[in-house]
Design a binder for these strands. Structure first.
Lengths: 154, 154
DNA sequence: ATATGTGCAAATCCTTTGCACGTGC
DNA sequence: GCACGTGCAAAGGATTTGCACATAT
């Protein structure tokens, strides 16, 4: 999906919810959408400020949940203090697992098609309706532990 | 496993690591082990103080990683600011998923035997070795949304 | 025009840490 | 005895919030 089309989708989402399409919100969108990797709120702030230097940290934090709700972004919480975000260009967020390397500190996104099936099955037995599911694998780097280096390490 | 046996197992673990079996650590163990539900660090502090009122918050936070490493406890992070802990009387921590109800705020622990298989498969493709995996399903309560109440709600 | 949104800085919340004192081995 | 552990209170770091001003509709 092109950024123009995606931006329009975001505008519609805002309208539908009677939220305003402010220049800051759009700057944050424009900063987030092209990112190919995971990023933090702080990194997003930096990028957004290059587009519109009036953007404040508070607005980034207030906008992130909106971007997540409109499924432009996926929130990735690996339990490390800060949350990560990832552009969601495909649209489906319930079938993706994360593999987090404790050595590289890198996050891989992997398709896990059985996840939503599992969520529905288990939830219905409890009288619940699934909202979403997260599957995360923590792992360590073989090459790092053998050679002391890892090609992916920063 | 009885609490006496489990306490001895914990003592051995401390010894093996050359950590000391202080009265505070054992009080915290005794407070954690019998808990049948999930609890937070703060709740554990309260319980531990009933056993030994000298226990401090700092020591609880310093002891929790030890209890987790000795697999007496499992850490459950549902991405809500604070972490939860759960007594691990069975011993296997890699095959359990959590279903978290957003209405009840209740956490259900469910067996998910395929998880470790998935972790290994995916990790090896990336040249990684899995350390552990978390599968969490967020859900909402059917009865709560239909009747406005939920038996499990506090 | 006016309800919403914004920036700023202070507040929050859980968790970690420095330090002087206490205690298991 | 001495290294390790503890309590206390202060620090830390990500996120949230109150308020006066700005702006989209």
């Amino acid at each position: 999906m092109s950024i123009t089309a995606a931006r329009e989708k975001f505008r519609s989402f805002l309208l539908k919810r009677r939220l305003r399409a402010t220049t800051q919100r759009l700057a944050i969108f424009d900063a987030a959408f092209p990112q190919s990797d995971h990023f933090t709120a702080e990194e997003l702030l930096e990028h957004a400020r290059k587009i519109d230097d009036s953007v404040s940290r508070a607005t980034v934090y207030r906008t992130l949940p909106i971007l997540t709700a409109s499924s432009q972004l996926r929130e990735v919480d690996i339990g490390s203090g800060e949350k990560f975000y990832h552009a969601n260009r495909e649209g489906d967020s319930t079938q993706i697992a994360q593999v987090v390397c404790g050595d590289c500190a890198k996050i891989f996104e992997i398709s896990a098609p059985f996840m939503s099936w599992y969520g529905s099955t288990v939830s219905s037995k409890l009288g619940l309706t699934p909202v979403n599911q997260r599957l995360q694998v923590s792992a360590r780097c073989n090459s790092f532990h053998q050679t002391g280096t890892c090609a992916r390490r920063e």
